[in-house]
Amino acid sequence: MSILLSTTRWTDACRELAAQLEDHDELLLIHDVENDPVTERQSTSESVRLIAAGEPEYCSGKANTIATGMEATRHVWTDHDVHPPSD
């Protein structure tokens, strides 16, 4: 499963989500630009990836980061309140 999180800095939510990842999961931390504070955080897990969305065009910053994350995901993604099927 892929978790998309739009953020510009490492937060408690990032830490908590990263700690809950299982072998087949990934956490995509989608930020705006390469020098956002979140990029200073070095991940010790290949399951946590930082992705720069760049400046939004014709949409909000949040919509831009989520669209970028959807393109970069390696797995199925869904809204947070839906449980994906086991297969």
Rank of each mutant, 00 (worst) to 15 (best):
V76F: 08
T8G: 12
R9T: 10
T68G: 12
C14H: 03
W77Y: 14
I51T: 07
V38Q: 04
N35C: 09
H24T: 04
N64D: 09
L27M: 08
G69E: 00
K62H: 15
S2N: 09
L29S: 03
S2P: 11
A63P: 03
A13N: 02
I3A: 11
H31R: 03
E34A: 15
V38W: 02
E57Y: 13
R15M: 05
E26A: 03
I66A: 00
T7D: 12
D25S: 05
T7F: 09
E55D: 01
V48G: 01
G54M: 08
E55H: 08
V82C: 06
D81R: 08
T73L: 12
A72P: 05
D79T: 11
A52W: 02
N64S: 11
H24G: 10
I66G: 01
R41I: 02
R41W: 15
Q20G: 07
H24Q: 15
A67P: 04
D87C: 13
V76E: 12
A18W: 00
S47V: 00
D36V: 04
S86G: 13
H83C: 04
S45N: 00
A19C: 09
D87I: 06
D23M: 12
V33H: 15
H80M: 07
E55F: 14
E22P: 01
R9N: 11
R9A: 04
K62S: 07
G69L: 00
L28G: 06
E46S: 14
S47C: 13
M1P: 04
L17Y: 13
P56K: 05
A67I: 14
Y58W: 09
E55P: 10
N35L: 01
D23P: 15
C14S: 04
T44P: 00
T39C: 13
A67G: 10
T11S: 12
A13V: 05
S6K: 10
M1Q: 02
T78Q: 07
T65L: 11
A53H: 06
E40M: 08
I30E: 08
R74F: 08
M1S: 06
A72K: 05
H31P: 00
D79K: 10
L28A: 06
N35P: 01
Q42S: 11
T73G: 11
E40K: 04
N35G: 02
S45A: 09
L21H: 05
E26D: 14
L27C: 04
Q20L: 13
A72V: 00
D36L: 00
E46C: 09
H24K: 06
I30H: 03
S45F: 07
L50D: 01
H24C: 06
E16W: 12
L5V: 02
T8M: 10
T68N: 03
R15A: 13
L29D: 05
S43E: 08
H24N: 10
E26P: 14
L17H: 09
E57F: 13
L4W: 03
T78M: 07
E40Y: 06
G54R: 14
W77V: 15
P37W: 05
T73C: 14
